[in-house]
Amino acid sequence: MTVSRLVFDAAAVLTVLFAAVMVIHRHPVKSVLALVVSFFGLAVCYVMLFAPFIAAIQVIVYAGAILVLFLFVLMLLNVPEEARERDPRPIQRFLSGAALLVFAASLLGIISSHGAPAAPAASSPSGEVAPLARMLFSSGLLPFEALSVLLLAALVGAYVLAQREEAK
């Protein structure tokens, strides 16, 4: 058990734990704050897997931008705490719980039987960013440019959707 494996496992446990806190908590703002901690743990996992660039954008884009957007919307709408009333749809709840258990069992079964890749690693991984950038702007150039159009479309779409009725 080496140090980096220990750090990875600790960060992964932290990530899953705080994601569970997010799911369990009824107060939406506290849910989002738990998810921020979870995403920081995930960034530590990425560093341990030699992906420091992804760890950086995980913190900047996910924890920094997307979750702050969630917080803005929660505070703008003043979303109340989820009521502790009985669920009006008990059958659906039971079925989704059963489906969850079946899915968990099949997922763990698949991982334990077919988890490892057929071909082992050709080269030892390194955390350099430059080769990733070279790949992004050569083989990944078309999706990269398509993504910029998608982001523009999302910007316009969000503006139109959130507009007030009388402004149209």
Partner: peptide, 13 residues
């Protein structure tokens, strides 16, 4: 990298 960028677009919409 692409998944994170798409997640940002998805979150805004």
């Amino acid at each position: 990298f692409f998944v994170i960028a798409i997640a940002a677009a998805e979150a805004s919409v």
